[in-house]
Design a binder for these strands. Structure first.
Length: 492
RNA sequence: GCCCCCAUCGUCUAGUGGCCCAGGACGCAUCCCUUUCAAGGAUAAAACCGGGAUUCGAAUUCCCGUGGGGGCACCA
């Protein structure tokens, strides 16, 4: 059986930071397109001029590229169905609105915002649901034409059926029926000549040949409206897939600004732009977000290729998912461990440079096996490997004192260690460990005590990668110098 | 207030009438390994929201509650 290539799209509006929800939808869009040999498209829905924020569009494009979700068509890459920015498609919407008016499915409305607001207030006073009162719906075409000729400002409204039921089919939820009287005659074209989402998205999805519309469940409320618009045009519908929303980690309510700030304090973020600086990898992030709303029974650690291989729209879940940042840590560290040394080296290098450390590439490559399984986020490389690139380290005096010993006894151990190590012509883990172990054996000390002092002296910290392997990378000269320095600190 | 959607371990989920005294993963706990921290190995605790109905048999179908979420703009 051959699968029909799917054309999918992510259609964000440039009104703020690109967040997790957008990224996940884009991921599913991408997976579906790639799996079926189709195309994934970026379309910018910038019809609300008041809410558009400068730079937001760029942030979306950067975010998608960072994730590796490269789109086949979009504002900055072009494509046969462009333009891909809705403000540049104004004429297309005007024409389509006109078609709808001519077909009797839409009508010009001359009501001013003021009178609209007034009727709304009155309706609320009467405890009615606020709705458009239909004043202009009943205007004769002649009358409307006269008003337009007179230069009266107008908008275009969709003529929603007032009776009956609309049955809309969602791929994950089945048929959703809603009584038509629940709906307003929604605005299709605004006074500024730009369309609302309802018109623009329907027109573009059709014109761009979109086969599957994946979007957030916040669109479920206007879903019947959209279906009516598409049907009014006489077009066939795409496959509709309404995705679940993300809830805050407690599972109660969705992420708010407040929760986003709290997450940031813990080193997490729901904004894609923050992910690199926090040390998250595209692989880990993608794997994590993929699994919030997509049920994979087993072997849930997946590369992009594996996700494409295994993806199916039918596997998506309709229920809301609480964000779990611990799982992000898990997927991130797992993918880090899966990377080869060269790859990981190039990824952690910027974090050292961010701290103004001069990175020696040979050392960088050598330390990878030592720190790889210790990294949860990429920036953890700082905690585990900064000392490799420092000229000298300054251990805390208390870190140099072994458990159960005083500074004098610790100094003696450091001196003895110095004697043992300086007797070697080279320090590597093969030649350095046996004599040190022998020393531990014949003394009344524990390995923990001796190696603890050595670790603090050489790395400047209590927690580090394996000691002897680390000393090997640091080199004999520096190791001895740091040890000498530690002895001085202890004797002070 | 009205409308729509959702409901399995703390969390993400598998499960589409018998294979389920419910499987996996995160997290948690214990043990092993161990010079620190990790990683790895082993083990454990942990769920079908409630009530009806259909059926020989229901986590799985239907109804009613309850809880949660979303929507009711010349915003998307």
């Amino acid at each position: 059986m051959t699968i029909k290539p799917a054309r999918t799209r992510i259609a964000p509006s440039p009104t703020g930071h690109m967040h997790l929800g957008t990224a996940r939808t884009a991921l599913y869009d991408y997976l579906l397109a790639k799996k079926t040999g189709g195309q994934f498209i970026l379309r910018i829905e910038d019809t609300d001029l008041k809410r558009t924020v400068p730079g937001a569009e760029q942030e979306i494009m950067d975010g998608l590229r960072w994730l590796g979700l490269n789109y086949d068509e979009g504002p900055d890459v072009g494509g046969k169905f462009g333009p891909y920015r809705q403000t540049e498609r104004r004429e297309i919407y005007a024409q389509h609105a006109k078609v709808l008016v001519e077909k009797g499915h839409a009508y010009p409305c001359f009501c001013t915002p003021d009178t609209l607001e007034k009727t709304k207030q009155e309706q609320m006073k009467r405890k009615e649901n606020p709705h458009y009162d239909g004043t202009c719906r009943v205007l004769s075409p002649d009358e409307a034409a006269r008003k337009i000729a007179n230069g009266e400002a107008y908008i275009v409204r969709f003529k929603m059926p007032q009776e009956g039921v609309t049955v809309a089919h969602d791929h994950l939820r089945g048929d959703i029926s809603t009584e038509n009287k629940q709906f307003n005659d929604q605005v299709l074209l605004k006074t500024d000549g730009l369309p609302t989402y309802h018109l623009a998205a329907m027109v573009d999805d059709h014109e761009m040949g979109i086969t599957h519309v994946l979007r957030g469940s916040e669109w479920l409320g206007t879903f019947p409206l959209h279906v009516n618009i598409v049907r009014a045009f006489g077009w066939h519908e795409p496959i509709w897939v309404h995705l679940s929303v993300f809830l805050k980690p407690t599972g109660k309510g969705k992420m708010s600004k407040r929760e986003a700030a709290d997450a940031m304090k813990d080193g997490y973020s729901i904004f894609i732009k923050d992910m690199p600086a926090l040390g998250f990898t595209p692989e880990g992030s993608l794997n994590w977000m993929a699994l919030m709303g997509w049920g994979v029974a087993e072997d849930d650690v997946m590369s992009m290729e594996e996700m494409i291989e295994r993806f199916s729209v039918d596997g998506l879940t309709p229920s809301p998912a609480a964000i779990n940042f611990q799982r992000l840590d898990h997927f991130n560290s797992t993918h880090i461990r899966l990377m080869n040394a060269d790859d990981l080296a190039s990824r952690i290098k910027p974090y050292f440079e961010r701290e103004n450390l001069k990175v020696d590439d040979a050392i960088l490559l050598k330390m990878i096996p030592l720190i790889r399984e210790r990294l949860v986020t990429l920036d953890d490389c700082l905690a585990f490997g900064s000392f490799f690139f420092k000229e000298n380290v300054t251990p805390l005096p208390e870190d140099l004192i072994a458990k159960g010993l005083d500074s004098k006894q610790s100094a003696e151990i450091a001196i003895k260690s110095y004697e043992i190590l300086s007797a070697l012509s080279e320090i590597n883990h093969i030649v350095a460990e046996p004599p040190m172990r022998a020393y531990v054996e014949q003394s009344a000390l524990s390995a923990n005590q001796v190696f603890g002092i050595l670790r603090a002296a050489v790395t400047g910290q209590k927690v580090s990668p394996p000691l002897f392997e680390s000393m090997e990378i640091i080199g004999r000269e520096k190791v001895l110098q740091r040890l000498k320095n530690a002895i001085e600190i202890l004797q002070r």
